[in-house]
Design a protein around this nucleic acid. Sequence first.
DNA 1: ATGACGGATCTAATCCGA
Length: 265
Amino acid sequence: MAFSITTWNINSVRLRIGLVQRFLKRAAPDVLCLQETKCPNDSFPVRAFKESGYPHIEIHGQKGYHGVAVISRHPLSDIDRRQFCGRDDTRHIGVSVRHGRRPIRVHNFYVPAGGDEPDPEKNWKFAHKLDFLDEMKAWLGEGATPSTLLVGDLNIAPLETDVWSHRQLLKVVSHTPVETQRFEEVRAAGGWADVMRTIVPPQDKLFTWWSYRSPNWETSDRGRRLDHVWASPDLAKKATAMEVLKEARGWEKPSDHVPVTVTFK
DNA sequence: ATGACGGATCTAATCCGA
């Protein structure tokens, strides 16, 4: 039985509920993981998702900033809303999806962006980002649990081909060596496979985000791969397809991130 | 090197994103 999952930083779920519905009608994933919902739990557009055929909804939101949600065709259980770095942020939700013989555990993350200055001494946001990654590593390390996925906006572009210019972004937050090394440590500690890169070879450029600040985002194509799908090895072996819906960046009033969908057999 | 845009918020100017 095939299973598909989408991760999408939506940058306000209420503002873009129409775009999300359009996407669901077209791509019809089993599970949709959203980040930056920017929406308190009591004003989440639950009804719109139910009308789109997604009755199972678990949210972890707050007013104004951050916020994650899992939207599913299948029942969800064992909900975990974890705090990181002792802060009352809404950057994680874990669920188990009832599907096939054994449930699929899904962790949906919104890793801190890290601010402008890539120096933890001068910039507390960057220090927070590094601490957050260390805490992810400690919590999810010690080998991946089978049948588990970790998706989300991890706010790091790890490979040279995950940015439009490796050389020009080495000192830009999201692609600095301290971040890309940390990213790799978290991935390796958990035994996760970078599924997008098992489908698209590492030598090919692959982006999921294009800045709002470039009016000609498509022709200049100065993107980064900030959104990720990681899988435990047993699931990674079953990945059959991956789509980055670049077209969504050109929709009316778009998010600056596009949806990433992976299908498993 | 800077600034370019866009969203949320006690709807005006400020913080934040990456």
